[in-house]
C-alpha cells in the first residue's frame, strides 16, 4: 500500500516526462552530441568523427556569427520596448471607459495579426514594401509628394526598418492582450482610493498599476525575447536575410550554415547551443531583476 502510494505520483507524471524527454531533452542532447562531431549532411561519405570543441572554436572565430548576433540583439532592443510601450498604451485604452462596443471590436481585431502565420506576414510585406506598387510607398509618396518611392527592400537600413515594422505590427497585440489581462488584477477599490490622493496618470500607472503588471511584463519579456531570438519565417520570406547580410538575424544564419550550402550540422548545432545559453541567461536576468514572484 505504502509502495503504491509512492509510485502513483510518478505514474501521473510519467506521460508528461516521457513526452518532454522525447520532444525536448533527446533533441537537445542530440544537438549537443552533433556539435562535438563532424556532421555534414550533404556529404554522407564523410564520417562523423569526434572533434572535441572544434565546431565551437569555428563559431567563436566566425565574424559573421557575431555580426548576426549583434543584429539580432539590436532588433530585440528596438522591437521589444516599442511593443511593450505600445502594448501597454493599447491595454490602458481598452481597459475601461466609454465606447464599449468599439473596445470589444478592437480586442477582437488585436487577435488578427497574431493569428497570421509569419510566412504570410513576410509575403504580404513583400507586396506592401514593393518599391513600385507597394502601399508603404503609396502612403509615403502621397504624404510627401515625392515621385520616387523609398527603396524599402533594396536598401540595407530600410530593409531592417521593414522587418522591424512588421515585427512590431504583428506582436504588439500580444503585449496588449497580456497587459490587458494583467490590468484585470488591479483591484477597483485600490484605484478608486488612489484617485482621492492623485489625478496624475503617471503616478497611478507607476504606483498602483505597474506592481500588478510586473508578472505580465516579465512574461512578455521572456516570451518575446525567446521568440525574437528565434525569428526566422517572416524575415526569410520578406528579405531572405538580405540585401547583403543586413537582415540576417542569428536564426537565418544558423539555418544557412546547417540547412543550406555545406549543410554543416556540427557548426550549426554549436551555434544553436550557444544561442540557447544566451537565451537562458537573458531569461534569468529578467526573472532576477523584474519578477519577484509572490512578492509582487
Amino acid at each position: 500500500m505504502h509502495t503504491q502510494k509512492r509510485i502513483t505520483p510518478f505514474l501521473f507524471l510519467a506521460p508528461a516526462v516521457i513526452v518532454l524527454a522525447v520532444v525536448g531533452i533527446y533533441p537537445l542532447l542530440f544537438a549537443a552530441w552533433v556539435s562535438l562531431h563532424t556532421y555534414l549532411l550533404a556529404q554522407p561519405n564523410i564520417p562523423h568523427d569526434f572533434i572535441w570543441f572544434s565546431n565551437y572554436l569555428t563559431v567563436i572565430q566566425d565574424g559573421a556569427f557575431w555580426g548576426s548576433i549583434g543584429r539580432t540583439l539590436f532588433y530585440l532592443a528596438v522591437a521589444l520596448p516599442v511593443q511593450i510601450v505600445l502594448g501597454l498604451g493599447i491595454a490602458l485604452m481598452l481597459r475601461r471607459g466609454r465606447w464599449a462596443a468599439l473596445r470589444g471590436f478592437a480586442r477582437v481585431a488585436l487577435v488578427i495579426p497574431l493569428a497570421m502565420t509569419p510566412v504570410v506576414t513576410g509575403l504580404i510585406g513583400r507586396l506592401m514594401f514593393n518599391q513600385e506598387f507597394g502601399i508603404a510607398n503609396y502612403i509615403q509618396t502621397t504624404i510627401t509628394g515625392n515621385k520616387v518611392g523609398i527603396e524599402w527592400l533594396g536598401n540595407p537600413t530600410m530593409a531592417f526598418a521593414a522587418i522591424l515594422l512588421l515585427e512590431i505590427w504583428q506582436w504588439t497585440p500580444f503585449a496588449a492582450l497580456i497587459f490587458l489581462s494583467g490590468l484585470t488584477a488591479v483591484p477597483v477599490e485600490v484605484e478608486e482610493a488612489a484617485t482621492l490622493e492623485t489625478r496624475s496618470f503617471w503616478v497611478m500607472l507607476r504606483q498602483i498599476q505597474m506592481p500588478f503588471l510586473m508578472p505580465a511584463l516579465t512574461a512578455i519579456l521572456i516570451l518575446r525575447t525567446a521568440d525574437i531570438l528565434k525569428q526566422f519565417d517572416m524575415v526569410y520570406t520578406l528579405t531572405g536575410g538580405g540585401p547583403g547580410s543586413s537582415t540576417e538575424l542569428i536564426n537565418l544564419y544558423i539555418t544557412r550554415i546547417g540547412l543550406r550550402g555545406a549543410f554543416d550540422q556540427g557548426v550549426a548545432s554549436a551555434q544553436a547551443i550557444l544561442m540557447l545559453v544566451l537565451t537562458i541567461m537573458l531569461s534569468r536576468l529578467y526573472i532576477k531583476y523584474l519578477y519577484k514572484g509572490d512578492d509582487a
Binding site: 550533404a42 547583403g244 547580410s245 550550402g261
Partner: peptide, 22 residues
C-alpha cells in the same frame, strides 16, 4: 561540383554587399 551550393551562399552574400557598396 558538389561544393557549388556552399560557394553560391558566399557569392550571394558578398555579391550583394559589393552591389550595395558595402
Amino acid at each position: 561540383f558538389a561544393e557549388w551550393p556552399q560557394i553560391s551562399q558566399i557569392v550571394a552574400e558578398n555579391g550583394t554587399k559589393i552591389m550595395l557598396g558595402q
